[in-house]
Nucleic acid binder design. Structure first.
Length: 490
RNA sequence: GGCGGCGUGGCCAAGUGGUCUAAGGCGACGGUUUGCAAAACCGUUAUUCGCCGGUUCGAAUCCGGCCGCCGCCUCCA
């Protein structure tokens, strides 16, 4: 069976065939870096992380591009609001580029903790102004765009397919239902390619139309074209960007290039928190840093990033996901079970008797792999794929109760590695048991107490024995004149 | 107003015409193991898939109606 993906463009699951054999270009709409990443980012980017990992598992050579939006994304409607990065910069009293850098780093840090593979290229919108201006020029030359007062708009009436992706009809949409119509536009659905900047606007660049900045939609067209070509295999993004962002990308790109822009459109569904949409005004807006530290009133504890990842993989990427403390807790418990099993297998592997794997078991492991791949091939059904890991864990734990062979255990470990690590990213190559200084201090103090108890009981043999044992480990006890005991490394 | 999605056990969640008396996880309960516990393992926990009607030899899965919930079209992945 081959990989099938649900293509938003055709609204069907289609067999995935890349344009060039064995090579896949993936472009995913990245974050606008004006704040810390939140649970919504986690769902979206873990979802596409799985796509990239699985394509690589299947043997494709994948180029994964995910932009960083640091200019042009407005707070209001696509044309009238303030630049998000600019506004946040003003609020935090930073230069916009410093603010973008801060949150870009924060974003990468959070994604690393979620064990998402880094994109191969993370292009910044502000680093591609020249290319964006070039695209606007092309669209003007081809008469798909018009200039008004230093701004350039795309003329939607000239692009027949506008609305095809999101199933909308320009005529049917209530023009300006919730948004003021810009007087400069010929048609309310027209969108900005280039915006004139007022003098106080910090981020602005010279252009043939005067000082200004690019429209938000432009960057994705330009950067995907630059790094992946005019026609790309897969474009991913959050469902909320299907309209208008992705429609606009299609219109710009295809008008400019006279070529299909994207062959497979993938859209990730949204998250809710306790059943409600997550919004800054709703007091249920949870950043990843808050989830990882537990610093949010909706959370009873801090959650390991892997628990968040596990919860995301527990459901399908096209289904909405409700984050609740209970759901996170359940995911955490489940993840712990898998982790403990993998650790136990690896530990036992080292001392298990030499011997081959039983034929019957080898067959069962192959079946697990078949089931896993069938699930993943079916539009990345991670929920079922994950269930295979739990079945594998059960088999492994049963074998651990018996005196099984080293080859059996290493086969199980290899399967955990291939499926759980390479594809799902919830099993790690290595688990280093790190002991903090605080824990060591508590342990030593515990022994100091025991020794002092022995001293009070005049059991000097035990007291001295304890001190000698600690000394062997490299820990020196020092009894002060006031009866207190401190310790230091030898 | 326009567009779309969802409703499966106490909770999360797969399954979308027969292998479904419905995967997997969490939780709960009983058992094995254990000095006790934890972990692990075994078993129990939906004859039923929001409600009503229809199509069909057969429906959680298709169609119609109703009820409920959610999202997008502003911000937001």
């Amino acid at each position: 069976m081959r990989l099938k993906l649900y293509n938003s463009l055709t609204r069907t699951k289609e067999e995935f065939k890349p344009l060039k054999k064995g090579v896949v270009g993936v472009y995913v709409c990245g974050p606008t870096v004006y704040g810390h990443a939140h649970l919504g980012h986690a769902k979206s980017y873990v979802g596409f992380d799985i796509l990239v990992r699985y394509l690589r598992y299947l043997g494709y050579s994948v180029t994964y591009v995910q932009n960083i939006t640091d200019v042009g994304h407005l707070t209001d409607d696509a044309d009238e609001g303030e630049d998000k990065v600019g506004e946040a910069a003003r609020r935090e009293k930073k230069h916009p580029m410093a603010l973008a850098e801060l949150y870009t780093r924060s974003y990468f840090e959070d994604m690393d903790r979620l064990n998402c593979v880094r994109p191969d290229i993370s292009p910044r919108a502000s680093g591609h102004i020249i290319e964006q201006i070039e695209l606007v020029k092309t669209l003007l030359e081809k008469d798909y765009a018009y200039e008004v007062n230093g701004s350039v708009y795309f003329d939607v009436s000239k692009f027949a397919d506008y609305g095809k992706l999101s199933g909308r009809n320009v005529e049917d949409m209530q023009a300006g239902a919730r948004v003021e119509i810009s007087p400069d536009k010929k048609n309310p659905a027209d969108f900005a390619l280039w915006k004139k900047a007022e003098p106080n606007h910090i981020m602005q660049w010279p252009s043939p139309w005067g000082m200004g900045f690019p429209g938000w939609h432009l960057e994705c067209s330009v950067m995907s074209m630059k790094y992946l070509g005019k026609t790309i295999d897969i474009h991913g993004g959050g469902l909320e960007n299907q309209f208008p962002h992705h429609e606009c990308e299609i219109a710009q790109s295809q008008a400019a290039n006279d070529a299909q822009f994207v062959r497979y459109w993938l859209h990730n569904n949204m998250v809710t928190v306790d059943g409600q949409k997550m919004g800054k005004s709703l007091n249920n807006f949870i950043t990843l840093k808050q989830a990882f530290s537990g610093a949010h009133e909706k959370l009873t504890k801090h959650y390991d990033p892997m628990a968040v990842r596990q919860l995301i993989l527990n459901s399908h990427y096209r289904s909405p996901l409700d984050f609740s403390d209970a759901a996170l807790f359940a995911a955490h418990s489940g993840h712990e079970k898998l982790t403990e099993t993998v650790k136990a297998v690896r530990k036992r592997m080292l001392q298990a008797p030499n011997g081959p794997i039983e034929t019957k078991l080898a067959k069962q492991l192959r079946q697990f792999r078949v089931k896993f791949e069938a699930a993943m091939n079916d539009d990345l059904n991670t929920s079922v794929a994950l269930s295979v890991l739990f079945e594998l864990a059960r088999v492994a734990n049963k074998l651990l109760d018996q005196n099984t062979t080293d080859q059996t255990l290493s086969a199980i470990d290899a399967l955990f590695g291939r499926l759980g690590d390479d594809v799902l990213g919830i099993v790690k190559h290595q688990y280093e048991e790190q002991v903090s200084d605080e824990v060591i201090d508590k342990l030593v103090r515990f022994w100091i107490q025991r020794r002092n108890q022995a001293r009070r009981n005049k059991d000097f043999a035990l007291a001295d024995g304890t001190r000698a044992e600690l000394d062997n480990i490299g820990i020196v006890l020092e009894d002060g004149p006031d009866g207190t005991t401190t310790w230091r490394w030898k």
